[in-house]
Simulated assay, not measured.
Amino acid sequence: MRTATIKILKDELEHKSSKELLELCLKLARFKKENKELLTYLMFEANNEEQYRESVKKEIDILFNEVNTKSYFYIRKSVRKILTSTKKYIRYSKNKETEIELLLYFCLKLKKIKPSIKKSPRIQNVLITQVRLIRKGIEKVHEDLQFDYNEKLLELDL
């Protein structure tokens, strides 16, 4: 089966009734967990971005508390999982401020993890890469926010 382009899908969706659209949305939500999460974000959380950020930060806290710190291998594996989850939530929002705040929060939590990540170059590289992404994102927001985010970035003292 060949996948249709977005344009073709859009044109076809324009001809559907609201009941048919509802059924299609529900089928998508049942098909994959990410679709259900995205639909939940769009319906319930998109109108309050600050609350959304806080809920994702709480989830990041929970995930960092569950990190197995017995070896750097397990830490790195857990950190990658947390980062993947964080990026997924950033993708749902597509808001630069949310992206910067969540990545900053992730980096601050990563920096505070015990044992120190300074002994693991691979985990440090994860941190450095995310800081680069934060800096790129900061350039794209309003000047007042740039100053605030740069202040928070200094807390990482890289």
Score class of each variant (00 low, 15 high):
Met1Cys: 02
Arg2Met: 13
Arg2Leu: 13
Ile6Arg: 15
Ile6Val: 07
Lys7Gly: 07
Leu9Pro: 03
Glu12Asn: 08
Glu14Gln: 14
Glu20Lys: 00
Glu20Gly: 00
Leu21Tyr: 04
Leu24Lys: 09
Leu24Tyr: 06
Leu24Cys: 03
Leu26Ala: 08
Leu26Met: 09
Lys27Ala: 15
Ala29Asn: 08
Arg30Thr: 05
Phe31Glu: 10
Lys32Pro: 01
Lys33Leu: 10
Lys33Ala: 11
Lys36Ala: 08
Leu39Gln: 03
Tyr41Lys: 10
Tyr41Asp: 00
Leu42Thr: 01
Leu42Arg: 04
Leu42Cys: 02
Glu45Gln: 10
Glu45Phe: 11
Ala46Asp: 07
Ala46Ser: 06
Asn47Ile: 03
Asn47Gly: 10
Glu50Asp: 06
Tyr52Arg: 01
Tyr52Leu: 00
Tyr52Gln: 02
Arg53Leu: 09
Glu54His: 10
Ser55Thr: 05
Val56Asp: 08
Val56Lys: 00
Val56Trp: 03
Val56Phe: 05
Lys57Val: 13
Lys58Ser: 07
Glu59Cys: 07
Asp61Ser: 07
Phe64Gln: 02
Phe64Asn: 02
Asn65His: 10
Asn65Cys: 04
Val67Asp: 01
Asn68Arg: 08
Thr69Phe: 13
Lys70Val: 05
Lys70Arg: 12
Tyr72Arg: 02
Tyr72Glu: 14
Phe73Thr: 00
Phe73His: 12
Tyr74Ser: 14
Tyr74Asp: 15
Ile75Tyr: 00
Arg76Met: 10
Ser78His: 14
Ser78Val: 09
Val79Tyr: 01
Arg80Thr: 15
Lys81Asp: 10
Thr84Arg: 13
Thr84Asp: 15
Arg91Met: 06
Tyr92Ser: 02
Ser93Glu: 00
Lys94Pro: 03
Lys96Trp: 05
Thr98Arg: 01
Thr98Ile: 09
Ile100Met: 04
Ile100Arg: 07
Ile100Asn: 03
Glu101Asn: 04
Leu104Trp: 04
Tyr105Ala: 02
Tyr105Glu: 06
Tyr105Ser: 03
Tyr105Cys: 04
Lys109Cys: 08
Leu110Thr: 08
Lys114Glu: 12
Lys114Ser: 14
Pro115Gly: 15
Ser116Cys: 03
Lys119Tyr: 12
Gln124Asn: 12
Gln124Arg: 13
Asn125Gly: 03
Val126Tyr: 14
Val126Phe: 13
Val126Arg: 07
Leu127Trp: 01
Ile128Cys: 11
Thr129Ala: 14
Arg132Glu: 13
Leu133Glu: 14
Arg135Pro: 01
Lys136Thr: 09
Lys136Phe: 02
Glu139Gly: 07
Val141Trp: 00
Glu143His: 05
Asp144Ile: 13
Phe147Asn: 09
Phe147Glu: 15
Tyr149Ser: 03
Tyr149Pro: 02
Tyr149Asp: 10
Asn150Thr: 05
Lys152Arg: 05
Leu153Thr: 01
Leu156Trp: 08
